[in-house]
Computed example of a mutant assay.
Amino acid sequence: MHHLRVFEMLLHERSLTRAAKALDVTQPALSKTLSRLRVYFNDPLFVRVSNRMEPTPKALELARPIVDVLGSMRALRVDHAAFDPKTSARTFQFCVVDAGVIKLLPPLVERVTREAPHVRLRLVQLEGEHLESWLETGTIDFAMGSFPSLPKSIRRQFLWLEEYVSVVNRGHPRLSGSPSLREFAAENHVLVSTMGTGHSHKLAEQAVESAIPPERIVCRVPIFLAAAIVAKHTNAVATLPKSIATVLADDLNLEIIRPPIRLPKIDIFQYWHNRFHRDTANRWIRSVFESLFRERGHRPRT
């Protein structure tokens, strides 16, 4: 089964390095497995073309039968493996931008520790180009955020509607409350860029860029917490999702201000692949997220 999973991941990733990372094995170990597959099937299976490992005709011929075998084995696990959160020692892996970590992780850890004391959580660094394949192959159990480009084979459940606000150091010498556009644009800004993740935060990033002179964007960072810390220590402005701004405002002594620009509202979902829809463990962790974070009475925008 491990050998077939290596084949499946190489088929998705077309890279030894990325496949090894997704499977959480070393590249030499993965190369050794590929060598055994080559001997077994008497074919190179994947050959290097430029910077990619492209499948041979034989590999393409094997792809569907191998995917079917793996799918059948996963179905057997789903149908016959009972899951009891009180006794299970399963590790759930998921992807989320750091904004989600700040909002989700404290109540999630408290809930899981209480209801499933042996269950463990592992957050995987988000990489948009691999998100679909990681969900399909079970490399991660689910993802959280706003990824509108994911295909229909990826199921989703709406959780909440995210808005944006700005934060500055409390006692900022010029900004507070509801500044004018002129006052807002005259300040230095630290911008969060989630480039490469496929996350809808890019809409907020673009809105700030369109309203602020380029010379006033003094720093770009990949995570929201870093932007808040820069704002704390430099009097710069950071524009963040409201749900985490409220947490960081207390923790870092920041002041929330109303930005005088039009910022998007983003639907936040949890995502999982259709092949794991009936998996009892997957259903349990999804139900935990739903009970903790779903806004009742709200619907995703269309």
Score class of each variant (00 low, 15 high):
residue 205 E to P: 13
residue 112 V to P: 07
residue 179 P to C: 04
residue 109 V to E: 07
residue 131 L to F: 03
residue 293 F to C: 08
residue 210 S to H: 08
residue 156 R to Y: 00
residue 193 S to V: 13
residue 77 R to Q: 10
residue 147 F to C: 11
residue 186 A to V: 09
residue 255 E to H: 01
residue 11 L to V: 00
residue 160 W to C: 06
residue 30 L to E: 05
residue 128 G to V: 04
residue 286 R to M: 03
residue 110 E to T: 14
residue 78 V to S: 14
residue 88 S to Q: 11
residue 25 V to F: 04
residue 60 L to I: 06
residue 173 P to Q: 03
residue 52 R to G: 08
residue 58 K to E: 13
residue 80 H to P: 05
residue 150 L to R: 02
residue 212 I to Q: 02
residue 6 V to R: 01
residue 126 L to F: 01
residue 87 T to Q: 14
residue 135 L to V: 08
residue 66 I to F: 01
residue 294 R to E: 06
residue 99 A to C: 15
residue 148 P to W: 07
residue 111 R to H: 15
residue 165 V to T: 12
residue 285 I to W: 06
residue 208 V to I: 15
residue 252 L to V: 07
residue 200 S to E: 13
residue 211 A to K: 05
residue 204 A to W: 04
residue 35 S to I: 03
residue 203 L to S: 10
residue 103 K to C: 14
residue 136 E to G: 04
residue 181 L to W: 08
residue 129 E to H: 06
residue 300 P to L: 02
residue 146 S to R: 09
residue 134 W to H: 15
residue 59 A to K: 00
residue 241 P to G: 05
residue 288 V to Y: 08
residue 200 S to G: 02
residue 264 P to I: 01
residue 264 P to L: 02
residue 120 R to G: 02
residue 228 A to G: 04
residue 84 D to P: 12
residue 125 Q to K: 13
residue 158 F to Q: 05
residue 255 E to K: 05
residue 283 R to I: 02
residue 44 P to D: 02
residue 289 F to S: 06
residue 56 T to Y: 07
residue 16 L to G: 01
